[in-house]
């Protein structure tokens, strides 16, 4: 049977309570890999948002005709098709961003957020609820990436969305991989701190 959930609750859970990056800690590979600048973070977030919404939509639509045992391969083919669509569109219309994100675009296929939502949500809920879930989770992912990318770009390059506000060099470590882990750790700590105080 299809489960039900209120639309508002469903949408908001992806943003805060079950934020894929900051709470579920899913999809850490693109999270840590591409967030060296705010522009990259937004690009990656929106690409993933598109794939999430579309794959959730299609998978919840076809969930009743797909036999259980070939569920996962079918989902992966559907997800991979949408990722390839995103890749072609980005190469055609945003070549500079495509160049920057490079390998991380095809890697959306194996992003555990996308398959995770397909398996945990879209294959159990109605089409409408699945789309809302995709939008919520996608936006939550985008916001978390933007937060991380902004913090890293501001500290590491002294700029935001490519606009430099100081001529001197930033703290290089924040642009490199270790800075990604440090920043993500601090953001999660702050989130947890805020949550504790509220409850």
């Amino acid at each position: 049977m299809e489960k039900t959930i209120s639309a508002k609750e469903n949408f908001l859970k992806g943003l805060v309570r079950e934020n894929p990056v900051l709470v579920l800690l899913l999809g850490c590979c693109p999270t840590l890999g591409v967030t060296s600048s705010a522009t990259n973070a937004i690009g990656m977030g929106l690409a993933t948002l598109f794939v999430l919404v579309m794959s959730n939509f299609v998978i919840s639509l076809v969930k009743n005709v797909i036999p259980d045992k070939v569920r996962i391969p079918s989902f992966i083919v559907i997800i991979a098709a949408f990722v390839t669509v995103v890749q072609l569109l980005m190469e055609a219309y945003t070549p500079a961003l495509f160049e920057q994100l490079g390998l991380f675009i095809p890697l959306i296929v194996v992003n555990c957020i996308v398959l995770g939502r397909a398996e945990a949500f879209a294959s159990r809920y109605s089409v409408g609820a699945s789309v809302v879930d995709g939008v919520g989770m996608g936006l939550g992912f985008t916001l978390a990436l933007l937060l991380l990318g902004s913090a890293r770009e501001v500290l590491g390059s002294l700029s935001w969305f490519g606009l430099k506000f100081s001529e001197s060099d930033g703290m290089l470590v924040f642009v490199l991989a270790p800075g990604a882990f440090i920043t993500l750790g601090f953001i999660i700590a702050i989130m947890n701190g805020l949550k504790k105080n509220k409850v």
Partner: peptide
């Protein structure tokens, strides 16, 4: 409910 996982079903789906 999903269709039963019989061999023809799986092949056709994929």
């Amino acid at each position: 409910m999903p269709k039963p996982s019989t061999f023809p079903n799986m092949v056709i789906t994929l």
